[in-house]
Design a binder for these strands. Sequence first.
DNA 1: ACGGTGACGAGAT
DNA 2: TATCTCGCCACCG
Length: 117
Amino acid sequence: MVERSEGATTNFYERVYRAVCKVPRGSVVTYGQVAVYLGSPAAARAVGYALHNLPPETDVPWWRVINAKGGVSHKGRGAQADRQYELLRGEGVVFDEEGYTNLRAYRWLPGDEVAFD
DNA sequence: ACGGTGACGAGAT
DNA sequence: TATCTCGCCACCG
């Protein structure tokens, strides 16, 4: 269900997917960050909802989107969270015992991909 | 058309 | 500093 992401008129979802696709491998962004990027800083929840409705075969790197605390949400709820951790670790993102990562180090800033140190 | 929901976030206690 | 509460936005039945 809910596979209206492709060619659908619901632009918000597509904007979210489009934004997430820009996140390079090994970097992460927060829901709120995506919301701001889309022009709706208060739509963080909507962003999460958009990603939630993504089909399993999507090309969108949904796992690169985490919460503002630096950890994945819905953790402990199922394989989804565990899978997200695995995918991120597979890209070099390191998490501590609390399940949080250093956003200052991994957060991707649009247009700032070359700048570092 | 209405109310409830949810992969969030920031401020208040 | 850790927890709790309230507010946001878009979506579903």
